[in-house]
Design a protein around this nucleic acid. Sequence first.
RNA 1: GCCGAGGUAGCUCAGUGGUAGAGCAGGGGACUCAUAAGCCCUUGGUCGGGAGUCCAAAUCUCCCCCUCGGCACCA
Length: 604
Amino acid sequence: MEARMPENILIAVAWPYANAEIHVGNLTGSHLPGDIAARYHRLKGNNVLMITGTDAHGTPVTLAADKAGKSVEEVYRFYHEGFIDLFQKIGITYDLYTTTHSENHFKVSQTIFLALLKNGFLFKKTEPQWFSPGLNRFLPDRYIEGTCYICSADGARSDQCDACGNVLDPAKLVNPKSKIEGDASSPELRDTEHYFIDLSKLEPDVIKYLKDRADYMRDTVLGESLRKIEAEGLRPRAITRDLDWGIPVPVGEAGWETKKLYVWFEAVIGYLSAPIEWGQVSGQKEAWREWWINPEAKQFNFIGKDNIFFHTSLWPAELMGVGSAFMEIFAGEEVPLILPYDVPANQFMNLEGKKISGSRNWAVWGRDVLTRYDPDAVRYYLTVNMPEAKDSDWDWAEFVTRNNNELVATWGNLANRVLAFCYKNWDGRVPDVDSLRPADLELLAAIENGFHTVGAELEAVRLRSALGETMKLATLVNQYLDVNAPWSAIKTDKAEAGKTIYTALKAIDSLKVMFAPFLPFTCERLHGFFGYETPLFGEQYTETVKDSLGEHLVLRYRVGQIANLSPQWKPSELKPGTKLNQPGPLFKKLEENVAEEERARLGK
RNA sequence: GCCGAGGUAGCUCAGUGGUAGAGCAGGGGACUCAUAAGCCCUUGGUCGGGAGUCCAAAUCUCCCCCUCGGCACCA
């Protein structure tokens, strides 16, 4: 393949919230597609930085801590460490998985706030907000419900009634109640002053930002952003809250000590602060600029559809409002930050036809499912069923059949049958061949072409399609084997059988690379069967970072011994005579009763 | 109510102007290297309904029906 300049690719994933475990819907929604993209670009030789971390702040964490009788820090650390354990077990290779509760993130977030203030995009405004006398704290609207004063339906939110659809005046809500368990006090409206970001002023910029990307952004994403904004406009939005837990608002005025930056205003800033922290812990303090100042860099935000607004409106608005002022305050140079290239948001994954619900245990939890199934089996099903265009469904019976009929039968069996046949009949070595036949060259050409077609799908973040293309190529090799039947040929002409096996091995060696972003664990094993001495991927590890807020665990990724290899996203160059290692099955076939057993676990 | 996304073979879904597709499930066959896997052939659809534009529509326009999601100070 032609030489090319490496691209700088930032893979930024939505920040998991520290009040619940991660389930398969969260994985397929953002972490897994991000990891597949990151691994592909690494194989391609691009400079990849994949980051995110735990969103530690916000009211729900505070309330979860109250309920558990623990400190907010304990609660956030509990989930944070669990997330890191899961990402190692399922191979989500963050270069840095950190947290919003770090000195660095505080500083970067506050700098963004100050830059927006400097540029005139923030204003203060006093509004009534619900206050719980029982909890002695302000509560977000979602925690208040009452009776609608228009249609008399119960369960109306304070600003809108779902029953009649009317927008409500919170002050008129009848019999307002706190939805917090154990809070029997009657919430009341109290005036409170907050900072707002003037999104209406930034609306033309946001529209232009989205229109510039409209030819490749997903239709579902544009529908929830561009078309919605054109229809409804953007309104100013409060970016501070009355809360003890969170990032202090960097204004030295009295009365602001009890207020914090709104979680989504600051969580998205993590896409900037995490690369900065990554540079610090890697001893390359300025390296983050390669993904944030370099206008050629491409940033991807992998998120679920629930976050589309924050990533297609609020975050670009923050960045455009900041302009060069962030760097001016942060580093003393007036250069602008770049804007995200694409926001490939996924829809939701349901479970057995119903919406996933953590509180009702209608969920397949990431760490739990990995105690019974291999990570690549889970990754495979989550990828073929990824909700790229619309909501999808995790169905246990389908999990079993896709595992058995596709992963095991088409791909795993292909690798195993060819390697085992070769190992047994050619003394553990790749057969020697003098020349190849037209059919052999034809197969290898088709496989080689896959690096272009599958690569194009991966670059466009059409992951289901990319995996489907790869699986089709595996079928092509199965067909080739059937036509050439080396198990028959070997009885009369071992050289001919050797050509078939050599060709098939080379094809499998190539397919291994194409499958690797999706199935990294088994492809790494297969890589080992072929006798390679360096791995396909680097390794994950954790370390503890200390700062003025204390310390936090981070997950990292070390490229290690493959750092100096040339890009691996290219056709196999397998040499005749290469010594193989003892092969074995890559995947496990699942029993038919698995679906029944798993369904019995749900909802309990 | 408003906004958005969907409604294509029994099931899960791909397909945005040019003779209806894939995988699974069902039926038949040849083979045996392989986790009884793989391969070949095959049954099956008036592309939610109606009207329109066009030489030509699953694909564009309009109306209607149904499902799901959101309704932004909730993450």
